[in-house]
Simulated assay, not measured.
Amino acid sequence: MTFSLDALRRWPDVEAPDLVATDGADRLLLDESAAARAGAGDSGLVVIGDAYGGLTLSAAADGGRSIRVHQDPLTGERALAANAERFGLVDTFSSLPLSTDLVRGARVVLLRLPRSLDALRDIAGLIAAHAAPDVVVFAGGRVKHMTLAMNDVLRERFAQLDVTHARQKSRVLVAREPHDGADPVPTRATHDGIVVCAYGGAFAGATIDIGTRFLLEHLPPLACDTVPIDFASGTGVVATALALRHPDLRVLACDQSAAAVASARATAEANGVGERVDVIRDDMLRAQPDGTATFIALNPPFHSGSAVHEGIAPRMFADAARVLRPGGELWTVWNSGLRYRPALERAVGPTRQIARNAKFTVTASTRR
């Protein structure tokens, strides 16, 4: 099958007519980097933040091999793998963590700019520390999501920064001459007796967002034989709080974000409960067997990448229902304006309101 950007799919992420797998920023990045990629050589090309494989597979279709790739969401990794299978390009790349091995000796980096400046700071420092001295970083995004602060972050690690002309509402920053590199380290802050650790890009950073804080205020005491699941755990605050409140329990935390998983592990360790909090990277709760859990806590996201989409939370409710045993409970906090209660009733079972304030609602849904 001939490769085509237009034929890429988002699956297993949410798919809808208004959600695309690639955009103008991908095309501009590929065009601006074409000459540099041709001279990068084997193992010289690194792709960071590729949404669903457009950058990686376009480079592979142009003859690139041994491409190293990092995508923060696990759904992105799986979409890349599925798209590669369709186009016969499965042996052209390897997916790696955001680590030294990802960028060591890299000569060209294609980067979709993250929304978080802290995430960009982590990436820029890592590249500057371990890539080749002549590395060229092509960092692109949609103009509406780009800020001048991104230029400043890149200038902290690169002596030369050029800005391309905009095209299709997209722009590329080109960084050269790396200096003063540094490996990512999590930021730390203490809130209500919990040390929160966060790598760049983790939701809410080293704070506790107000929805999670409201959920924490109302979580119930748990029986000694419960194995709680912190679903979409972010920095692991709920998992850590449950482990601290229940010294005899082991807690599972899962999130599809690599930055969130690393942050949750660091948070659990910082609070002395690392041995009782198991943190895994998972797409939804796919690694968990049907009908095995008795308690799940969830603060569902409502973004798929940069797009707001109402279909994300119902999918999470359905997967939580699959994992819960009959009589098990899903405790959810949600923005009251989203009116999730009917969806929880349909997916899980009878749902009662536990608490409500001006902005958030906490509910408990019992698996029917």
Score class of each variant (00 low, 15 high):
7 A>F: 00
289 P>R: 05
230 D>F: 09
193 G>M: 10
55 L>K: 04
113 L>C: 08
274 G>K: 12
135 V>H: 07
110 L>W: 10
52 Y>P: 00
102 L>A: 08
155 R>T: 15
186 P>I: 00
26 D>S: 00
249 L>S: 12
334 W>K: 01
216 L>Q: 04
180 D>M: 07
308 V>Y: 09
48 I>F: 01
158 F>Y: 08
231 F>P: 06
365 S>T: 05
274 G>R: 14
113 L>Q: 10
248 D>P: 00
215 L>Q: 09
272 G>P: 08
354 I>D: 06
310 E>F: 10
196 V>Q: 03
266 A>R: 02
37 R>L: 12
125 G>E: 03
268 A>H: 08
180 D>K: 14
298 L>S: 01
245 R>P: 04
113 L>S: 04
171 R>Q: 13
88 G>W: 10
201 G>S: 04
44 G>L: 07
34 A>R: 15
203 F>L: 14
269 E>C: 06
104 R>W: 06
135 V>P: 02
187 T>G: 00
233 S>C: 15
105 G>F: 09
98 L>Y: 07
267 T>F: 01
227 V>N: 11
9 R>G: 13
368 R>D: 14
319 D>W: 09
280 I>C: 14
168 Q>L: 05
78 R>Y: 10
239 A>C: 05
238 V>W: 07
292 T>H: 15
28 L>E: 03
47 V>S: 04
360 F>P: 07
89 L>C: 01
157 R>K: 14
315 R>G: 04
304 S>L: 13
75 T>D: 03
74 L>G: 08
30 L>Y: 02
348 V>Q: 06
299 N>H: 15
79 A>N: 04
219 L>S: 05
159 A>D: 11
238 V>I: 15
16 A>Y: 02
192 D>G: 05
303 H>A: 05
156 E>N: 11
249 L>P: 08
210 I>Y: 10
267 T>S: 15
46 V>N: 06
225 D>F: 14
29 L>T: 01
